[in-house]
Design a protein around this nucleic acid. Sequence first.
DNA 1: AGCCGGAGGTGAACCGGTAAAGCTCAGAAG
DNA 2: CTTCTGAGCTTTACCGGTTCACCTCCGGCT
Lengths: 342, 342
Amino acid sequence: MSTPPERVTIKDVAAAAGVSKGAVSLAFNHKPGVSEATRDRIFAAARQLGWAPNSSARSLSRNSVDTIGLAVCRPARLLGLEPFYMEFISGIESVLVERDCSLLLRLVGSLEEEIQLQQRWWRERQVGGSILVDFHQRDPRIAPLRKLGLPAVGVGHPDLTGGFPSLWTDDATAVAEAVRYLAALGHRRITRVGGPTGLGHSAIRADAFERTMRELGLNGGRHVETGFSGEEGARATRMLLLSSDRPTAIVYDNDIMAVAGLGVAAEMGVSVPDDLSLLAWDDSQLCRLTHPTLTAMSHDVHGFGAEAARVLFDVIAGKEVTSRPVSTPSLVPRGSTAPPRR
Amino acid sequence: MSTPPERVTIKDVAAAAGVSKGAVSLAFNHKPGVSEATRDRIFAAARQLGWAPNSSARSLSRNSVDTIGLAVCRPARLLGLEPFYMEFISGIESVLVERDCSLLLRLVGSLEEEIQLQQRWWRERQVGGSILVDFHQRDPRIAPLRKLGLPAVGVGHPDLTGGFPSLWTDDATAVAEAVRYLAALGHRRITRVGGPTGLGHSAIRADAFERTMRELGLNGGRHVETGFSGEEGARATRMLLLSSDRPTAIVYDNDIMAVAGLGVAAEMGVSVPDDLSLLAWDDSQLCRLTHPTLTAMSHDVHGFGAEAARVLFDVIAGKEVTSRPVSTPSLVPRGSTAPPRR
DNA sequence: AGCCGGAGGTGAACCGGTAAAGCTCAGAAG
DNA sequence: CTTCTGAGCTTTACCGGTTCACCTCCGGCT
């Protein structure tokens, strides 16, 4: 596609510095074999000519790439609203910058499309490895991508990532904490508005929710399944508030739906937190902007992204890495939760 | 970084198909010179071996790259909340996919850092060109990047993009529409809560705001400058509502700040829209989730991103491209605006 | 004097593709 | 029966780096 106008190569630099191109290569890679003085001359010449090593040529002869891939499979309209991803990406990049690497990002429409994409990326050696996110139950990506030999790290519970080294937040414990908190406030009818159950972490949270409710001797627990969008969160909330045995507390799977829930409560004249407690997940800044502010399960998404990148580099380097959890989300109480009005 | 285990090259495919590698190259690039039958054999062999052309080798010999760059200079915490960027990116990608290209994304901390980055990207031929966003007044990126010869398209008014072909939304007209609408409702004390004036489009909107207010004979117009964050939007709103001649309408520069403003109004017992009208910008889904819903200036951000990518490809291809506006944001009235209570 | 060793280079072979020139052969034109 | 033509391949020279074997000094040691 591009046809650069001028092109200065290592040969030009070598000529300018009066050395061979081998010497330039040595100097630029900080390898021994060139004297201090020559090194300086080489760098001066390179700076003068505005030269930097052509990354294609470099990765061709080194047989390596300094790019990692991330494909995200959610509708763009949702993604934009999920503060999670940008935070996560910025965490990844904080690590990439240190190593002069880059992130290849792609939004895909389906898991099948992602499989195609990852295969291409890897076969064409466009990436050295990938970070895989949003695991489904019996995720179709696992078999083909493992067979491919793609170095990758999975973001999700090891039960879901099928053999890929993985990093995950202990959602089960977090859900339990959220439910126990609401129960301690006196809530008995608690509903969870979750993501699609096909999505692995939604299923895990759903399980943990039911288990905890049972442990607490509460049988008023219910789930509603949504697609994570604010609109669906709003619809679910509206439906719940209209039902005969309406919940006194709702736990949302992200913060957009919680904000939407708050909107619906206001619209229907249901007072939060007096008549209804709301608990959000992921705790972006949004949770502090509403009135009342939103109690939320909070975690360090930036750090999560960074850790994922670090682990991926280890995988690529061939190190033995073991799956492990990152820090568990913890409850940050704010204005949207209170004891139910008796 | 990566050292792939097995590596199948064009030579292996050629051998498997019983032809020379030149023939494989011809076949894979859909060039004439190979018979139907041979082509089929080659593709069969490639599929069999799971081969795809190594992208480094390809771009080295073609002297071209199929990657474009995007560096975004805003704090990650803000970015995650700005639905704008993900939408914009998804627009870009919709075009990239058609052309089998990729997006190199980087979040940077300052414009100086971006200059360094773009220089590296271009000199190392990591990208074929870049999309430049968030222009400042007398943007420091312009001179060095033009000198560099980087193919680029600027997202912003031509007055700001200093010679880069550019694409922009006509914010001046949009601001005028917003102000006229509020004025028509009967508002006279209208305040604008804008982004940092260093940012080009903020300045343009500020100008247009003042001009329109003057044209309408209103001198109760004021600006508050913020950094686009929800927190700052909240603080600005709080300050405005506490002032002696408090505005009856506020125009925000993005939708996060508008949501924050709504929160503050609720917190202070100011009724929206009866006591205060609020108008948001960019119109993400968020605007439909609050109560009341937010009147907003709406535009097609996805299409904007797609168009930017298309223009960049033209620039890279050496076509003569001229700067032009994309569709002007238009007002979508919702529940947060009404005539002021007299 | 002769030999050795290491610092500081050089040169050529490669990495895996693309592109352009060259070769071969069947069939059409003269 | 040549000669020409062009379709269908092969050959070979790159692309711009990295790497490794090898060369050349120069000082120190025996």
